[in-house]
Design a protein around this nucleic acid. Structure first.
Length: 713
DNA sequence: TGTCCTGAATTTTTT
DNA sequence: ATTCAGGACA
C-alpha cells in the first residue's frame, strides 16, 4: 500500500471512508476504534499520528504510539516517516516493552534499582529459574524450569507478589514453586536485572509509588495510541490507564476476534470494558474490509462464527470476484513443501516474491520449507526467527558485553567465566557460588575479591585474576561503543582461535562478522540525545537493550522475498497470496492448546484474513517429527470452512519416496545427497559418525550413518 | 579439570 | 533426527 504524503490540505480525506476520517479527527478524549481485519486500521493510526503533528502541531515526543510486536512497531515507524517525510523515525512509536525500558532507564533508581539494569530474555530467565531450583535442592525433572518460569510469569502478570503466593498456596507443589518464585525475585534484584514481565510491572510500580515520575510521564504524553488493544494484559492496561490520567487523550484500536495472546496473560476484558474504564469514551466501528475477496471473508467468517460469546461483526467488501480457496491434501510434508514451491514457480517469479507469505503454527515447521527454498534458490525471509541471537557464539559475545554493562549479571557471568576454556571448572564455580550465597553478593562481584578467599588454589586464583583482567581490558575499550567492544572482546579472549577448533568455524565466524556489522549500524542509527550522558557505557547499554527487545532480523522491507512466519507473527500484515501449512489436528490447533481452541480458531481467522487474493490451506496425511512419523487428521478448521473452500487431493503427488539405501563406504571428500539438505561433501568420518558440509547457507551437519537419509552419488 | 559416553528432551505461540 | 546435560572416568 502506498500512502501519499500527508498534507494539511484535507486531500488525505479522499483516501479514507467516513468512519476512518472520524477516527483520525477525533483526537481528544478516550476513543475506542473497533477495527475488523483489513479495515484499514494501520492507515487510520498513521494518518491520525500525522494529523496530530501537522494539524494540531503536537510535538512527536508528546505522542506515544504503542504496538505489540517489534515488527509492527517497525512498520508503523516506516509509514509515519514516509507520511511526514521524516529523516529519522519517531522514538516513541514503539512496543510496550521498549517504551517501558526507556521509561525505567530514566527513573528506575526511584524504586531502588540501578539504571544500568540488564534485561533477561526468556532463555536467561529460564536459566535463572534453573539456578534457583538447584540452590533449593529441587529436582529439575519434577519441576521443569520452563514450566515453573511460565507459572511465575503468570503470577507476575497478575501483579501477585511472592509473599502472597506463599500465603495462599494450596498444595505442596504450589508451595515449592512459590519458594522458587521468592528466590527468583531475590536473584533478579541481586543481579540488577529485569525480566520481560518486570519491564511492565516495575513501570506500574514506579507510577504507583512515585508521584513525580507519574506526573513527568503523564504530562509528557499528551496523546496516546495503542494498537492491538485486545492483546493487552493487566499491567499494560494499568500503564496506559496511569499514563493517560493527565490528558485523557487515549485512543485504542483492536478487534476481539483477533485476540491471540491469552496464553501470555492478554485479557479481552480490557477492550470489552473500555467504555467502563474510560468515561465518556467514543466508539468508532470500522467494518468495511478493503483487503480480501468476499470468498476469503466468507471462509474466515465461517470459521470464526463457531466461537461462542463473540460480539458478532459484519465485515463487508465490494470485491465479489476472486479465485477459489483450495484446501490441498498431501502424503507427507516433503510433498506439501515441494508442491507449494512448484505452485509458486508457476505463478510467480523473483519480481513478485514479496507478495507471497507462508504461515505455520510453530517455528519448527519452517525448517523444511527453508531448506527446500534454499535448494531451489528462491529468495525468502524468515520473520521472528530469533535463532541468530540464540547461537552460541553470539550469546557468548553478548554475555561479555552484558557483563561490562552490568557486572552483577549472574547468567552472563556463568556463561563466559570458562569460555574460552581457561581452567575454571565446575568445582571452582560451585565454590564461588556457595560463597556468593553466604555473602549475599552477586557471584560476579566475588572475582574482585579473590585474594581474600582461602578455599581456592593459587592456580585457580591466577586464572580468576586473569579473567578479571580480561573484563577490565574489554571495559576500557567499550566506551567507544558496541562494535569496538566486540572487537576487543574477540581480541583479548582469543575467541576466534577457540572457534577455529569447531568443524563449522567458517559459518560461525560469519555470524560474528555480521554481529559486528549490526553493531556498527546501530551506532550510526542510535538517537544519541536519548542516551544518558552521565553514563560512559550508555551506548553499550542501549545496544544490549536493542538486542533483547528488537531483533535486527525483524524488519520487513520490500525485498521481493517470500515471507515465512508463524501465524502469530502474521497479525497486522497482508499479502496477495497466503499459504497456511500444516492444517492438521495437533499441529493446528496445536495439541498443547486444546484447552483453548477458541484462541486457536481466532489465530486461524487472523491467518486467513491476511490474504488479499489467493489463499491456500494445506495439510499432510503424515508428518515426521521427533524422529518418528505421525498421522494427524485434517484440522477441524477445514471442516468449519466447508462450503467456502475447494478440496483437492494431491496424495498421488509423490516427489519423495521412502526407499532408504544402506551405505558403507563413506570417506572424506565424497559427495553425498541428503534427503532434506541436498548435496554436500563429507569432511570428517569417525566410526559411524560423519560430518557433511552443505555449503555456506546450510553449513556443516553431523549424522549417524546408520540412520541418516543420505545417499552416495 | 577435561573428555567421552549415554540417555533424555525437543515443539506453542512473543516480549 | 539432533542436541544437550549430567555422570563416569582419565
Amino acid at each position: 500500500m502506498t500512502d501519499k504524503k500527508y498534507k494539511i490540505d484535507n486531500t488525505w480525506k479522499e483516501l479514507l471512508n467516513t468512519n476512518q476520517v472520524d477516527a483520525v479527527e477525533t483526537v481528544d478524549g478516550p476513543v475506542l476504534v473497533v477495527a475488523g481485519a483489513g479495515s484499514g486500521k494501520t492507515r487510520v493510526l498513521t494518518y491520525r499520528y500525522a494529523h496530530l503533528v501537522q494539524k494540531h502541531n503536537i510535538d512527536m515526543d508528546s505522542i506515544l504510539a504503542i504496538t505489540f510486536t517489534k515488527k509492527a512497531a517497525g512498520e508503523m515507524k516506516d509509514r509515519i516517516s514516509e507520511l511526514l517525510s521524516l529523516s529519522s523515525p519517531p522514538v516513541w512509536v514503539t512496543t510496550f516493552h521498549s517504551a517501558c525500558a526507556r521509561i525505567l532507564r530514566k527513573h528506575i533508581s526511584r524504586i531502588g534499582f540501578n539504571n544500568s539494569f540488564s534485561i533477561y530474555d526468556s532463555q536467561d530467565s529460564v536459566r535463572l529459574v534453573s539456578n534457583c531450583l538447584k540452590e533449593l535442592d529441587m529436582d529439575t525433572k519434577q519441576y521443569p524450569p520452563k514450566r515453573i518460569h511460565s507459572q511465575i510469569s503468570m503470577w507476575k502478570n497478575k501483579l501477585i507478589l511472592p509473599g502472597e503466593v506463599i500465603d495462599e498456596a494450596s498444595s505442596f507443589y504450589e508451595t515449592k514453586i512459590a519458594e522458587v518464585y521468592v528466590k527468583y525475585e531475590q536473584k533478579l534484584i541481586l543481579a540488577n536485572s529485569l525480566d520481560f514481565d518486570d519491564l511492565l510491572i516495575k513501570t506500574v510500580e514506579l507510577f504507583n509509588t512515585d508521584e513525580d515520575a507519574l506526573l513527568f510521564w503523564s504530562k509528557k504524553f499528551k496523546y496516546i495510541m495503542v494498537d492491538e488493544y485486545q492483546d493487552t494484559n493487566f499491567p499494560q492496561y494499568k500503564i496506559i490507564e496511569l499514563l493517560s490520567r493527565e490528558h485523557k487523550n487515549i485512543c485504542v484500536v483492536g478487534d476481539s476476534d483477533q485476540s491471540i495472546y491469552a496464553f501470555r496473560g492478554a485479557d479481552i476484558r480490557n477492550i470489552d470494558e473500555f467504555d467502563k474504564d474510560f468515561s465518556n469514551a467514543k466508539t468508532i466501528v470500522l467494518d468495511r474490509n478493503y483487503r480480501s475477496t468476499q470468498k476469503i471473508l466468507d471462509a474466515a467468517n465461517s470459521v470464526i462464527s463457531i466461537n461462542k460469546n463473540r460480539k458478532s461483526k459484519n465485515l463487508w467488501t465490494d470485491r465479489t470476484d476472486g479465485p477459489e480457496i483450495n484446501s490441498i491434501k498431501f502424503n507427507n510434508e516433503n510433498d506439501e513443501t515441494q508442491w507449494i514451491i512448484n505452485e509458486i514457480n508457476n505463478n510467480f517469479n523473483n519480481e513478485n516474491y514479496g507478495e507471497i507469505a507462508i504461515f505455520y503454527r510453530m517455528n519448527s515447521q519452517s525448517r523444511i520449507i527453508q531448506e527446500a527454498l534454499t535448494r531451489e534458490k528462491i529468495s525468502y525471509k524468515v520473520i521472528g526467527d530469533v535463532r541468530f541471537y540464540e547461537r552460541k557464539e553470539i550469546k557468548d559475545i553478548i554475555a561479555y558485553l552484558t557483563l561490562i554493562a552490568n557486572p552483577d549479571n549472574e547468567i552472563a557471568f556463568e556463561r563466559v567465566i570458562n569460555v574460552p576454556r581457561r581452567g575454571i571448572g565446575n568445582v571452582t564455580i560451585q565454590k564461588l557460588k556457595s560463597l556468593a550465597l553466604n555473602l549475599n553478593m552477586p557471584i560476579s562481584r566475588l572475582i574482585y575479591k579473590i585474594d581474600d578467599i582461602d578455599e581456592l588454589s593459587e592456580r585457580v586464583k591466577k586464572q580468576l585474576t586473569n579473567f578479571q583482567e580480561i573484563l577490565v581490558g574489554i571495559k576500557s575499550e567499550s566506551i567507544d561503543g558496541p562494535a569496538k567492544a566486540i572487537k576487543s572482546m574477540l581480541e583479548i579472549t582469543h575467541y576466534e582461535e577457540m572457534l577455529k577448533q569447531e568443524v563449522d568455524y567458517e559459518s560461525r565466524w560469519e555470524n560474528v562478522q555480521s554481529l559486528i556489522t549490526g553493531a556498527s549500524e546501530f551506532e550510526i542509527d542510535v538517537e544519541r540525545d536519548e542516551l544518558d550522558t552521565g553514563d560512559p557505557y550508555s551506548l553499550l547499554t542501549a545496544y544490549l537493550e536493542n538486542l533483547s527487545l528488537f531483533a535486527a532480523t525483524d524488519e520487513l522491507e520490500n525485498e521481493n522475498k517470500i515471507i515465512l512466519m508463524t501465524l502469530h507473527n502474521a497479525k497486522g500484515l497482508e499479502f496477495e497470496t497466503v499459504f497456511i501449512t500444516g492444517m492438521e489436528e495437533n499441529i493446528f490447533p496445536h495439541e498443547l492448546s486444546l484447552d483453548d481452541v477458541e484462541e486457536e480458531r481466532r489465530l486461524c481467522y487472523v491467518g486467513m484474513t491476511r490474504a488479499k487474493e489467493r489463499l491456500y490451506l494445506t495439510h499432510s496425511w503424515s508428518r515426521s517429527s521427533w524422529g518418528g512419523t505421525f498421522y494427524n487428521p485434517p484440522s477441524r478448521f477445514l471442516e468449519e470452512a466447508k462450503g467456502f473452500i475447494t478440496d483437492i487431493d494431491k496424495t498421488d503427488y509423490s516427489q519423495f519416496d521412502d526407499s532408504g539405501e544402506e551405505n558403507s563406504n563413506y570417506g572424506i571428500g565424497k559427495s553425498v545427497t541428503h534427503e532434506v539438505y541436498g548435496r554436500g561433501v563429507v569432511i570428517e568420518v569417525d566410526g559411524s559418525e560423519i560430518s557433511v558440509d552443505f555449503g555456506s547457507e546450510i553449513g556443516v551437519k553431523h549424522f549417524d550413518t546408520e540412520w541418516a537419509p543420505i545417499e552416495y552419488e
